[in-house]
Design a binder for these strands. Sequence first.
DNA 1: TTAGCATGCATCATA
DNA 2: ATGATGCATGCTAAT
Length: 151
Amino acid sequence: MPPTRDEVDAQLEELGARRLFEKVLSATDVRGGAVPGDRVVMPKRNTETHLPELESQAGVVLDVEDLEGQRYRLRLTYWTNSPSSGRMYILEGTSQLLQHYRLRTGDALVVARTGDGGLLMAGQRKQASRAGATCSRADCINKLGLALTLL
DNA sequence: TTAGCATGCATCATA
DNA sequence: ATGATGCATGCTAAT
């Protein structure tokens, strides 16, 4: 079971990393093609502001580590989509990372920057939706506390 | 209406 | 046949 948001944040703080953004996984992100979850569609805004700029469609190779120090070699590229959108960003080679955290549709991929400037990515458990949310007593109290601090 | 993205799908490679 | 790759299509939320 993937770590909760709070658990991820705690780990990040321990490692001296700062959270950049996260991507909620869609069905196609998780079951891409034959290789499950090998390519993830990345949000355009966050990708362009936080990740290295892409000169060409060849993309860039990203050296990434997870919360356990495991290393992955991922490739960031883009597709040119018909007029509506200029670019659509794709992260390739993610299947191992997704499997490591047992990520399913609705869970999220967290992107962070480590203290020494490296990239860190981690899995994060799906946030319970408010409507008909069934959560444990402890979780509900926890969420209430979080909501209050956000006010 | 448009931008952004989930997903479908045509095409090419591999075996 | 099966899988990989890149583009097209259409839905939805923000403008």
